[in-house]
Each structure stands twice: as structure tokens, then as C-alpha cells.
């Protein structure tokens, strides 16, 4: 009688492991490269340089409005790979499952991973599953590796921002972070919040097809817009100047942030990108982003300046000015 929860035997590599892999993973991830279930997949890299990234997903709760840890793992890895301009090709996935995890929940997560991979046009070529005793992991952790190929002549990186460049975002800030926080802290908030988790490879492809002057692409995940812009300003040794009024924030996200004393510019996004492009191509980039379903709210939010290097300055909505610093500590609801 097949168990409905994960048992330690599922991790032992014997009959139970094979049964689990066959029942849950193999069918849903099936493709010629993975099907042999050999020790390793054999890949023939296409011409061009490869972009490779690894990530680990420990989100709590594992299921949230707008997705779950499975879809998030695919989206997050695909996004990291294509932020260097690459076309994502392959993913590997490693699971750490806690003894007692419901197999129905695991199935839901694996199904949404398979769907997300198909939507992004990537193939899961290798996988691994380990089981740990109850309490040694929180239900499920997922580690991934993503590989993509960078078209000839394209070079994007956080060190390539230049004075005169324009700074754009592909949509509203803070959606994912506030959605997770509102669930996790059990703040019994009743708000139509939804994670923005999504693969951005289509959006990136359209953007790069329309503009050859893109210098930097970054997905502002942990630490949010402010932290990622500070990283870019430091790495490129440039200053970045923003207009707060131009930065899109969903009204509901703003409402929750007001209630909890949070700043949406420091909350994670899982389906947005920051684009830094030659000043002359700002409008072209904006048009390309807005033409894509995931870029409807795109906006030009500022520009890159010469000095002072490493500083992000923001003109506030009411006409003042202030530094937009990196996140310190963890965003927690506050009373004052």
C-alpha cells in the first residue's frame, strides 16, 4: 500500500526511492535527456557562451497566492539565467524532503514545476531527492541549477551601467515580498495579494530584440529594488538617481505596507526585472516591455549619473530628496 507521506525509506535509494521517483517525478518531468535516469545527463552545448546559475528555495509558506515553492524554483532560476541575456535551456533540481511531508502536496509542487518548465521552454535534465528526519527541514527545500546560452555579441552585467543610461522596471514593486509576509506572520490580513512569480525569458527576449543598447538586467528578489540598485551602483561605480513618483506600486501592496510599516522598495519581487539601457533607447525599451503581458506596468524610473559613485538618490514624491540605502536587517512588521 503506497504511503501518503514521505518516509525515511524513500530516501534510502532502494525500492521505495525508485517507487517514489517513478510515481511522482519521472512521469511529470519526462524528457529524452532525463528518462534514462542515469547518474548524469549528457548534453551537447550549442555554440556561444553559457550562462549558469544556482539557487535554493526555502520559502515559508510553501504554497501561497500566485504559486508555490515549485513554480517559484523554476521561475527564479530561469530569471537568474536570462538576466545575463541568455536563452535558458536546462535545469537541474535537488529536493530535500522532510519525513512526514504529504505526498499529495509534493505532487502539487512537482506538477507546477513541470508546468512552469514547459511554459519557460526549459528541460529538467537531472534531479535528486533526499529525505531527512522530521524537524530537520521545514517540509521541502529545493535547490536548482540553470543553464542557458548567450547569443553572440551580447554582454550584460551589473558592472556595465554607464552615466546617461536610463533605469526602467518591468512592473510594480514589492508584490511577492508582501504576499509572503502577510501569510507568514499570520497577520490575519484580508487583502487581494498575489505573488508576481513568473519566468521572464519571453520578456527579456522581446526587450533584447528591440534594443541593442541594454547594459544591465537584474531581477530584484531579496532586498528588493533598493538593494539591487545599490549593488549595481557599487559594481558599476556610478550614481543612480530615481523619481519616487515614477516607481509603480500596486495600491493594495501600498495599503498593506502602510499598515505594517514596510517599504515596498525593500520587498522581494519574483517576476520583475530592472533594466539599465542607453539613454537614447529608453523609450524603445519601455515600449517593448509594455507590449509583453509581464511588462504592462513597466516604467522609466530614473537615470545613471557620473557621481557620487555607489550612491542611489531618490527624488521623493512630495519634492524632497533622500538616499535610498541598501536593506539592513530583515523587513518585519513594526509598530512605529
Amino acid at each position: 500500500m503506497a504511503s501518503d507521506t514521505i518516509l525515511l525509506d524513500h530516501g534510502a535509494g532502494g525500492r521505495a526511492s525508485h517507487e517514489l521517483v517513478g510515481r511522482i517525478f519521472a512521469g511529470r518531468f519526462s524528457n529524452p535527456l532525463l528518462d534514462p535516469l542515469d547518474d548524469a545527463a549528457v548534453l551537447t552545448p550549442p555554440p556561444g557562451r553559457l550562462s549558469i546559475s544556482t539557487d535554493t528555495f526555502v520559502v515559508d509558506p510553501v504554497v501561497f497566492p500566485g504559486g508555490n515553492i515549485g513554480s517559484l524554483a523554476v521561475h527564479g532560476t530561469v530569471n537568474d539565467v536570462c538576466m545575463r541575456g541568455a536563452k535558458p535551456l536546462w535545469l537541474t533540481v535537488g529536493f530535500v524532503l522532510e519525513e512526514g511531508l504529504s505526498i499529495a502536496l509534493l505532487t502539487t509542487i512537482v506538477e507546477s514545476m513541470a508546468r512552469a518548465a514547459t511554459e519557460a521552454g526549459v528541460v529538467i535534465v537531472a534531479g535528486d531527492t533526499k529525505v531527512v528526519g522530521r524537524g530537520q527541514a521545514d517540509k521541502i527545500f529545493i535547490n536548482t541549477c540553470g543553464i542557458g546560452v548567450i547569443p553572440e555579441g551580447l554582454d550584460l552585467g551589473a558592472h556595465l551601467a554607464r552615466p546617461g543610461d536610463a533605469v526602467l522596471v518591468s512592473g510594480s514593486m514589492g508584490d511577492h515580498g508582501v504576499t509572503i509576509l502577510a501569510q507568514r506572520e499570520g497577520l490575519n490580513l484580508d487583502a487581494p495579494l498575489k505573488s508576481d512569480s513568473a519566468s521572464l525569458n519571453g520578456l527579456v527576449a522581446d526587450l533584447l530584440a528591440a534594443c541593442d543598447g541594454v547594459h544591465v538586467l537584474r531581477d530584484p528578489t531579496r532586498g528588493g529594488l533598493a538593494t539591487t540598485l545599490n549593488e549595481i551602483a557599487a559594481t558599476s561605480r556610478v550614481a543612480i538617481e530615481l523619481q519616487e513618483g515614477a516607481i509603480p506600486v500596486d495600491p493594495v501592496v501600498q495599503g498593506v505596507c502602510e499598515l505594517l510599516g514596510l517599504d515596498p522598495f525593500y520587498l522581494a519581487n519574483e517576476g520583475k526585472l530592472i533594466c539599465i539601457v542607453q539613454g537614447g533607447q529608453a523609450q524603445a525599451a519601455l515600449t517593448a516591455l509594455r507590449a509583453h503581458p509581464l511588462g504592462g506596468n513597466a516604467a522609466i524610473i530614473g537615470q545613471v549619473k557620473e557621481a557620487p559613485a555607489g550612491r542611489v538618490w531618490m527624488h521623493t514624491r512630495v519634492g524632497g530628496g533622500r538616499i535610498l540605502d541598501m536593506l539592513s536587517g530583515e523587513p518585519l512588521p513594526r509598530i512605529c
Partner: peptide, 11 residues
Amino acid sequence: AKVEVGGVQRL
């Protein structure tokens, strides 16, 4: 009481 701010409701 259930109160509402910017589309968000809370007790």
C-alpha cells in the same frame, strides 16, 4: 470591527 485601508481589510 472590520476596517479597510486601500483595499486591505483587517480586524
